[in-house]
């Protein structure tokens, strides 16, 4: 279980101080695949590195399984892997062997199965792999680890469409083999939505939303119609963004479902559009 209590992380000196994480409280307890969404610079990587004890919090407390986390006390059960993680330039087979030797309970069978599935050449040196393949290898190393918490930072960066699909298979296969907390940060929202159960949206260093994907599917929708019909409906609803073109308005809602009056259509709001609206919706409002 991961617990953040009023955690703040600042970078830099006084004059150039950047607040990457601002007074965040968060609790992740149930096993599942979690999707961490946020714009570039929103604080996703910092949040994950704090969870893994790779960096120290400026303020607040982080615990994993009730044990305090810091750089001097890296939690045993957490494995954080970033996209483009540097590895020793040795053969793929040797890297897998080294990881297996370094980690307790490394699932070699799973790793070998995945290496075959993704056609990773065991005889190639790490630097001879494409960027996508490097990331895939690093992800396999992370997922073969039987840690209770796996943190994958932008794992699909540099993947083509087929590799992204394969990655989702890999993630599901791993989760089915070892159910645990897997947090994936990504920008490819709709693709990860197929396999993820819970969504955490971060913006400007703060948690904007933490919800089940089903809940977002249920509560996020668009009302469209003439302005004079749509506008009165918004008084009782949580409108996260709206677009007006002439006399027609599209209002994006994250709230209870309503039965719209005649002349107003209810359309599904894709996860990507929901994210755009909730993070940048105020620009359209």
């Amino acid at each position: 279980m991961i617990e953040f209590t009023n955690v703040t992380k600042r970078y830099g000196r006084k004059s150039t101080k950047i607040i990457a994480i601002d007074d965040v409280s968060l609790s992740v307890s149930q096993p599942g695949i979690y999707c961490l969404l946020g714009r570039n610079g929103a604080g996703k990587t910092t949040l994950m590195k704090l969870m893994a004890g790779h960096i120290a919090a400026t303020k607040g407390q982080i615990t994993v399984d009730n044990s305090s986390v810091s750089t001097s006390r890296m939690p045993e059960g957490v494995n954080y892997i970033e996209s483009g993680a540097i590895q020793f330039n040795i053969k793929v087979a040797e890297l897998i062997k080294a990881a297996a030797d370094l980690q307790d309970g490394f699932d070699m069978e799973f790793a070998e199965k995945m290496l075959t599935m993704f056609r990773l050449d065991m005889k190639k040196n790490f630097k001879q792999l494409s960027f996508g393949m490097k990331t895939m290898l690093t992800t396999i190393i992370a997922l073969a680890n039987q840690s209770k918490i796996i943190l994958l930072d932008e794992p699909t960066l540099g993947f083509d469409a087929i590799m992204r699909d394969q990655f989702n298979t890999l993630l599901l296969e791993s989760y089915n083999t070892h159910p645990r907390i897997i947090i994936v940060s990504t920008h490819l929202i709709d693709e990860i939505a197929k396999i993820t159960e819970r969504l955490i949206i971060i913006d400007n260093g703060g948690i904007l939303l933490e919800a089940e994907i089903n809940e977002v599917d249920e509560r996020a929708y668009t009302l469209s119609g003439m302005v004079n019909l749509v506008l009165p409906l918004l008084d009782d609803l949580n409108c996260i963004g709206k677009t007006t073109m002439g006399s027609v308005m599209a209002a994006h809602i994250f709230d209870r479902r309503i039965v719209p009056p005649e002349g107003v259509a209810v359309n599904r709001l894709s996860l990507q559009d929901f994210f755009i609206q909730i993070v940048g919706g105020q620009n359209n409002a």
Binding site: Q87, F88, I141
Partner: peptide, 10 residues
């Protein structure tokens, strides 16, 4: 850093 990326501990 490379040893940490292989799942090693400090």
């Amino acid at each position: 850093r490379r040893i940490m990326n292989l799942g090693g501990k400090r």
